[in-house]
Amino acid sequence: MARKVFRAMLEARILEMKLSSLYKAGKIVGGVYLGKGQEAVSASLGAQLEMGRDFFAPLIRDQGGRTAFGEEVIDCARTYLGSVLGPMRGRDGNIHRGRPQQGMFAMISHLGAAVPVVAGALLAKRLKGELEGVVGATCIGDGATSTGAFHEGLNTAAVERLPLVVVVANNQFAYSTPNDRQFACADLLDRAKGYGVDGHDLDGTDFLQCLRVMSEAVGRARAGHGPQMVVARLLRLTGHGEHDDGSYVPDTLRAGHLGRDCMDVAAAQIVECGYATTAEIEAWREETGERVQAALAAAQQEPKPDPWTEVWQACSKPLI
């Protein structure tokens, strides 16, 4: 598991750094949103889920989780680069992608909206008599905990006692708004009690703790203990998107415990625990870099959507 999670983190970091370069080179239009600093939290969640059985609704900073869940790197490359061969076919871009038939939902930009949707997919499983052993998970940030959708969705999941895991990545800022302008409770974890769900505190910079807490939270949901809320403390090591320099984050926070890079922590922990050697990590880094580069190069060569042949149709079965 540790090796799987770390490799997903590595792929996410390498992929996103290249996406950033492509954005700055003008090759990607719209925006690029990175999960830098959140890879350990996201990938350790995604690795606990099984594509084809479980549901995963990733959000903005979940490349790590997407990769660990089984999303192909080419899906990401094609969506960012607007290839017509990608899952979104140029109709939506960047992080707004998914493969709903395989249990990976395509996020909309409205935060918290996925919480009841994953609950609904789980309810469907229950109604079909197929819920046994299934988990649905979604990630949101500290800002999204202020939305009505989050509240309604988590409360509904709790009422139905569904195996939903909501991971709150508290990266201290919702875009530029700090925690003290976002909520007044002492800790977001306090909210779990209010909803009647299990709460799990997590140092999101600590790779081993991420593995342990995600395993426990997903395991409890899978075992029938109802919704689980994980609150991960971390810092976004980049702007909201690559258009944003994140200058509102104080240097003291960057220099502190939350400012440490989970990739560095993970690499050290994984070697220390004997899960992998430094040489192995370097080999992974090289192999991943080449694979990511190949996917991005391929996606850049692929056809872009053509407005003349586009099927301008929002319904699957037009009535007229």
């Binding site: 549901f55 709903p100 939902f105 909206a113 996925a114 919480v115 009841p116 949707v117 994953v118 609950a119 609904g120 997919a121 789980l122 309810l123 469907a124 109604l127 009505g148 959708a149 309604e152 969705g153 409360n155 509904t156």
Partner: peptide
């Protein structure tokens, strides 16, 4: 909001 969201997830 959750009622509609639940329906969407169940329909998918």
């Amino acid at each position: 909001d959750a009622m509609a969201g639940v329906a969407i997830g169940a329909a998918i």
